[in-house]
C-alpha cells in the first residue's frame, strides 16, 4: 500500500515530504526508544512514535524508513521539519494514539513485515 493511501484512509496530516507520498510501505514499527527502532525497524517501514525532536530524522534516514508518523496530536519541532525536508523523509501526524493507529494500520493490511 502507498503512503498516500494510508494518509487519506487514516486522516493523517502531512507536515513535510509531500513529494514522497507515492512510496510503497513494507510494514510498520512503533517505538520511542531510538536504539530499539535502529535495531528492529526494517527498510520501507512507517515509524510510529511520540518523539518529535530532530534526531528521529537520522534514524529514519539510516534505516531507510518510508515515513515518520507522530501520534497523540504531536507536531514536529521546527528543526526536525527542516532536517526531514533536507533528507526527503515525509513526516505525518495523527490525533490517534500509537496503539490505535497501529491497530488501524494492521486492519489495512500493514503488518510488521
Amino acid at each position: 500500500m502507498k503512503l498516500s493511501e494510508i494518509k487519506s484512509k487514516l486522516d493523517l496530516v502531512s507536515r513535510c515530504g509531500e513529494d514522497y507520498l507515492e512510496q510503497e510501505i513494507t510494514g510498520g514499527y512503533c517505538g520511542d526508544l531510538l536504539s530499539d527502532v535502529m535495531a528492529n525497524s526494517k527498510q520501507g517501514n512507517v515509524w510510529i512514535t511520540i518523539q518529535v525532536h530532530l534526531n528521529i530524522v537520522a534514524v529514519a534516514t539510516l534505516k531507510e524508513l518510508t515515513a515518520i508518523i507522530l501520534v497523540n496530536g504531536r507536531k514536529p519541532n521546527e528543526d526536525t521539519l527542516k532536517k526531514a525536508i533536507e533528507e526527503n523523509i515525509p513526516i505525518l501526524t495523527s490525533k490517534l494514539s500509537a496503539f490505535e493507529l497501529s491497530g488501524k494500520l494492521y486492519a489495512l493490511g500493514i503488518g510488521n513485515i
Binding site: L33, L34, S35, M38, A39, T49, Q51, N55, I56
Partner: peptide
C-alpha cells in the same frame, strides 16, 4: 526523554 538510553547501544554495535 528524547528516547536515548535504551541500554541497547553497545549490544547493537556488537550484534
Amino acid at each position: 526523554e528524547l528516547g536515548f538510553g535504551a541500554g541497547m547501544g553497545l549490544p547493537n554495535i556488537k550484534k
